[in-house]
Design a protein around this nucleic acid. Structure first.
Lengths: 206, 206, 206, 206
DNA sequence: AATGAATGAGTGTTCATTCAT
DNA sequence: CATGAATGAACACTCATTCAT
């Protein structure tokens, strides 16, 4: 006489969650390959086997998935970075840990969604998955904090942070394209480049 | 009743060439502001005073102007870079000259077409002018050549080239956003960072 | 864990009837504010707290509720009108009673569901509640009957009925927009206009 | 050497004008049959043989054709009405002339675009072509003016104007549906009804 | 019965490209 | 060659309706 509502932990909730993730994954791939403008909602849902309508059951617009992607990335990477920042005693160890964490994150991502961006694609009129953007934002923040705490020489903070991020991003991308995948070598490269560079940089007023 | 478009038989060729250039300039500006996808052919021709039809007399498609832009950029920058490469006796002087040339190029471009890309644009759905892409391609090539000629230590060439380009690109962008524009400071930053970094990099087998 | 929706076996039928009415009431409001096309099934059920699915348990389509609304209106108004018609001894008294009844009905409806149709709506894309339409149909029928029974001069019956209905409808609408609401004045206006007009109308062969 | 522009009075301009009108006519018919909401841009262009794109070459939106229709109607009817109003010496002659003009206008319109609204159509969820609305607006204005000049008794102006318009509209519609078309009879009916009615109406303070 | 996610045809609108003039 | 109207595939998004739970 009760329980006519099928509110049970049920398959319903499960498929809902699964679909949400499926759309997010598909969007990640499509935005990564095509960029925001060129990607179409149909491109995204085609990969999920769902219908156009279903897309709009989960996200209110193309823009919203894009943003959700950024949130997702930030949410997953932020804790890792913050833990690192908390226990860092000097610049080198922080940098090494952070780069390593980022590259591991990247390698992990790659496994979870097959990057099949056609190699000869028209020069990727964009890169910058929102997810990656969010991660960078996070890195920049923590990085600024480390400098503030005096764990690194006083150089042009903005330029340095931007450079680190640019290098990590670029080398990260290339690392993913090399076989076998060598996270260790890639992060060592980045860390040494930055560390060596920082010592040579012009100092600025504190 | 007269409607003289072609002032004299001789001017005909001139007009043609001028239109080609006009379209290219307009396209540069529009792609820069809006990105490839969001830019429309009408946006481009509106700035030239020509008609849609005329556009297709000069270029077969929107994609073709985009590519032409890349070619144009490369064509203009390549000689400069090659001259540099030819007279470079060591890595440092080459790097300094190249970075400086690139930054000057950037500063020059900025003047020639008003950068009014809305600063708070929704997460850079734009980016990557074909011209800039071409310049990078060029830098990479010359850079590899310099390494080949033994003017720089044997490190991971690909990673290093990619890193230099990434840093130059990133710092270049930020340089353009700072007031006053300080090309000297920006290039000094990049050069020292790279140079210092290179000495710290792990050597590899030739 | 209990989730009691049907408090007792007996209430079941009551709930069903109540839902039917709830949907009808919501539909009346929504169609009134938005018009048939612009109104969505979701707009309707949102006001009832029911689910989309429930809607289709009670009515087979959006169109069906619309029609049901008309039936409902007619069903409620018909007895009133017929009683009037039965005891009418002359045209004037019938007309006065009918108009008055209609305006009272209108005034009553207005109270029962808040008329918040935006006053400056873009040229009344709305209009014609099915209910009102049905009422008119009813009036026309009785009206023809009255004429048949010789209680009014032989004029162009169709034109006259149509005119009366048009005037009543129009003045009824305007009456509702005036403050204070003056049902008496409005019906007096209509009755006198029609009565005065009828005497001046050209007679036709029976 | 000149005149390469094909600017001649040319077929170009002609077809453009013709298309504009064709779209307007099609829109008139479609909006009349379906109402604004239910009518689709595709319904409209289907009747013209043009393409969807062409529609948007002539009007910026569905809403814009709708408005254009109103403008068109007003533009054509206003002069007629104003001339009438200028030479009217008393209420009766003005009313007769105006009603007659409106009915003639209606009859003329009917010829120019075949009214094939399916007889059993779902109760025309709207009526009110924008064109008709505009004409009414005009009538109302002139009407108020006539009253102001003391050519008619001081009765409830708003109610009276609204009633006249409602009757004219309703009888106009029905007139169009009768065979043979009898404009004379229809306008006589309206004029006498109103005139007779006015004398019976309650007077108001001036 | 009740629920609400899934479906997909359909909507208004844009835009690269073609083509008659 | 220039012109700009015509074309129609495509897009983001909506919504009536169905159906598994």
């Amino acid at each position: 006489m009760s329980q006519i509502l099928y509110l049970s932990p049920g398959k319903r909730e499960q498929t809902k969650a699964a679909n949400r993730v499926a759309i997010l994954d598909a969007a990640r791939a499509v935005f990564g390959e095509l960029g925001f403008e060129a990607a179409t909602v149909r491109d995204i849902i085609r990969r999920t086997g769902l219908s156009v309508g279903a897309f709009y059951n989960y996200y209110r617009s193309k823009e919203e998935v894009f943003d959700a992607l950024a949130d997702d990335g930030a949410r997953r990477f932020r804790p890792i970075l913050q833990a690192l920042s908390a226990k860092a005693s000097d610049f080198e160890s922080y940098l090494r840990a952070a780069v390593r964490a980022y590259f591991d994150f990247l390698a992990g991502e790659q496994d979870s969604w097959g990057v099949d961006r056609a190699p000869g694609a028209p020069l990727a009129h964009t890169r910058n998955t929102p997810e990656i953007l969010a991660v960078f934002e996070e890195v920049r923040r923590v990085f600024a904090d480390v400098m503030d705490r005096g764990l690194a020489p006083k150089v042009d903070l903005d330029y340095l942070a931007a450079s680190c991020i640019a290098v990590a991003r670029e080398i990260g991308d290339r690392m993913l394209e090399r076989r076998p995948l060598d996270v260790e070598a890639a992060s060592e490269f980045v860390v040494r480049l930055i560390l060596g560079g920082v010592t040579a940089l012009p100092r600025v007023e504190p």
